[in-house]
């Protein structure tokens, strides 16, 4: 068992499950306790277990996924730059108000990645200092990577005025 699991088990008993696939090790939180546990758990991983780099935050929409119980998953990819060890922490959140705590305080890299998850899935990160759309236009109202949003959109891409030769 990796050393970080002992620390986590001692501090957060029964708050998470673990799983392994190929060389990916995961710590999975449940939909109910994600909001409460996520921040202290990541803080513990950073300060006590040496996972000093947050390399990635990715959102997933588990609508109609086989065996899924919660709708939005957010994956935090942590790296220990000294040992090269990797760990993925998975948190879940649900409609109607998908919310997770922001980890911006600990890792500056969370700034844009959390904004991107918000932009694409509408998951609000509570405590993020500047949570607004990053990739889509400000006026855009949908969250395009949600599974119930069609690939080709609702036709927003055509709604611009046309400039003809006479205008110029």
């Amino acid at each position: 068992m990796p050393a970080y699991l002992d620390t986590l088990n001692a501090k957060f008993p029964k708050a998470f499950t673990t799983s392994t696939f190929r060389d990916n090790h995961r710590v999975v939180l449940s939909g109910e306790n994600s909001y409460a546990v996520l921040f202290p758990l990541l803080k513990c991983l950073k300060t006590e277990c040496g996972f000093d780099m947050l390399g990635e935050i990715g959102g997933i929409d588990y609508l109609n996924y086989p065996g899924a119980t919660d709708r939005y998953g957010v994956v935090y990819g942590l790296t220990n730059t000294t040992t090269g060890e990797r760990l993925f922490v998975k948190a879940f959140t649900n409609d109607p108000e998908p919310e997770l705590p922001s980890v911006y305080e600990m890792w500056k890299s969370a700034d844009w990645m959390e904004r991107e998850v918000y932009d694409m899935y509408g998951v609000k990160f509570v405590g993020h200092p500047d949570l607004r759309r990053i990739l889509m236009p400000h006026e855009f109202a949908a969250f395009p990577l949600r599974k119930d949003y069609p690939l080709r959109g609702y036709g927003e891409r055509h709604n611009f005025q046309t400039v003809t030769r006479a205008d110029s």
Partner: peptide
């Protein structure tokens, strides 16, 4: 371009 319905409150 088309008029978007009120349920699709998305604008360019």
């Amino acid at each position: 371009a088309r008029e978007l319905g009120p349920d699709q409150t998305i604008v360019a």
